[in-house]
Computed example of a mutant assay.
Amino acid sequence: MGTRRRLGKFEGTGYDKGRNLLWQAAWQLASSLLVMPWFVPPRVRVAVLRSFGATIGTGVNLRAGVRVHWPWKLEIGDDSWIGERVWLLNLEPISIGSDVCVSQAAFLCTGSHDHRSPSFEFDNAPIHVEDGAWIAARATVLRGVTVGADAIVGATALVTRDVDAGAIVLAPRAQVSVAP
């Protein structure tokens, strides 16, 4: 039998948000008004992220609805595309190389919890997406993963370990049962 979690004992030990509470609140407001809405031009979204500490190269296309948890923990290379409704849950750094496509509703999540911890403490790690990779629609990349150069993570795939350069990861096919 596993350890019973006592969530009231959670302390968040070892997690550094990287900025003070006022800066975090300012980011949440700016994100809601100037990054996520459909009517804000991509160049404005990029400028706002940069003003909050993101390192973003030239030619980046950041579409509407993109959620970035902490911009000061985000790096994006040149000529990359971040699709609509992508969620970059970067409790730890996320680095995205050049010529990378992260398609609609993909989820990159650097955070988790230690299931063995009675207080369910964090078990976070960075994510690295190397040059030329493609993370397709609704794919999920979890903490501690490196997606190698020119690799493809197919639509709806779940990635829990490193993807070699040039590799293709697809979601498993659903098992369909047909009644006799």
Rank of each mutant, 00 (worst) to 15 (best):
V44E: 06
A133P: 11
R5P: 13
R67W: 15
S112A: 12
T110Y: 00
W23Y: 13
T110V: 01
G2L: 08
A179S: 09
F10Y: 06
N20I: 00
A179V: 01
V86I: 01
L91T: 12
S80D: 04
F122R: 13
I56G: 04
C109K: 01
D79Q: 15
A171D: 14
A133W: 03
T160K: 09
F52K: 00
I127G: 10
T156N: 12
A106Q: 04
R4F: 02
V86E: 04
V153Y: 06
I152H: 11
W27C: 10
R4M: 02
I96T: 03
T110Q: 14
I56N: 05
D164P: 10
R63W: 05
G8P: 00
V66W: 01
R45H: 03
V40M: 04
T13H: 12
W134F: 11
A106N: 14
T160V: 12
V46G: 10
I135N: 10
G18R: 04
W27L: 11
V68C: 09
A165V: 05
D79N: 15
S51G: 14
G8A: 08
R63L: 05
E11D: 15
E130R: 09
M36F: 01
P126L: 01
P180R: 05
G8Y: 06
A26N: 10
L21H: 08
S32A: 12
I96S: 08
L88F: 02
N124R: 09
V60M: 09
S98H: 03
P172F: 01
A174N: 11
L7A: 12
G111W: 00
L91W: 06
A25G: 10
L49I: 04
P41H: 03
V60C: 05
L74C: 00
S103G: 09
T110R: 04
R67L: 13
G53T: 03
S51Y: 07
M36P: 00
N61R: 14
W134Q: 11
V153E: 07
H69R: 07
V145F: 09
G154M: 03
E130C: 15
G132P: 14
V141F: 05
D16K: 13
G14C: 10
K17F: 10
A26Y: 01
V159S: 15
G18N: 05
V66D: 08
H128S: 14
L34F: 13
G12E: 03
P71Y: 00
A54R: 02
W23N: 13
I135L: 14
T146A: 02
T140V: 10
G18E: 11
R19H: 09
A136V: 00
V35K: 05
I168E: 14
C109Y: 02
L49F: 00
S98F: 07
S32P: 08
V153K: 06
P180M: 09
K9R: 15
V147M: 11
D114K: 07
A167Y: 02
E11H: 15
V35I: 06
D78K: 07
V86P: 14
G166I: 04
P126W: 01
W87F: 13
T3D: 11
P118Y: 04
A137M: 14
C101V: 14
F122D: 08
G53N: 01
S117K: 13
L62F: 05
G111H: 03
N124T: 05
L62V: 05
D162A: 03
H113I: 01
A179E: 05
A125E: 00
A171T: 04
D150W: 06
L29H: 08
A30S: 12
